[in-house]
Amino acid sequence: MAAPVYRKATLVSRKENPKGYFHLVIREEQIAQTAGPGQFVMVRGWHTGDPILPRPFDIVLADPLKGVFRLCIKVEGKGTRLLSTLKKGSSLYVTGPLGKSITEFDSSGTALLVRGAGAAAVVFLAETLTKLKKPVFTILSASTKSRLVCRALLEEFSNDVFIATDDGTEGYHGNGTDILDQLITEGKVDTVYTCGSHRFARHVKALDLAGKVKGYLFLEGYMGCGMGDCHGCAVKKDGEDGYFLVCMDGPVFRSRTVVVDS
């Protein structure tokens, strides 16, 4: 895996979709050329002391030919608010690609069970699996229709996209895990990746432990550096003492190896 670079990069475009979520396309050729599914970047778009630390974001897609990659950020605090207001052509400081890239694609059918901003994490994987002609079934969940994230991209890179909303404004009115269970029963998927919901993570882990699927979790953590220096992003190991670091050992983990917070 290529070692990360730290570069001044350029914001090529910025688009809000849906409200509160911003898609940033950033030009940095080396990152675009070496990034793989599951990897992330640390981004700083400010010279201030507050905020001071760079922020981690999953790489949504990378285009090695154009030398650009895309992020999708949810405006939550000071850092994401600043990033969401950057003008086209602005400079950002980016370290990446970071974390372990997903390299096993031997499943006969993969389900991507995602909610909210967690949808951004699996787009790259969906694209990779589609290029390899592996079946991809995406279950895209949100509280309501207007909060469905990365929908168009996931529709492009999935054999099927199932929508589930808590309020029934679109698609299945209920829990996305019901759709997953149905896909498993039908024998369509043997591997599941999930991101964006502790409830989903617990469900996938239970399926993994029961031997019904290979379950994987995209995890996040408070992260200072993204490259193993600060030891901040700890996640508890399951079945043994100690912690993994999300940045170095993940961010994608086999679900049975980590403790999922309640």
Binding site: D50, L53, G224, H231, G232, C233, A234, K236, Y243
Partner: peptide, 13 residues
Amino acid sequence: PGNPPPRIWETPC
């Protein structure tokens, strides 16, 4: 093993 998370928190500067 080190401490349980969260282990870091950003503050002004």
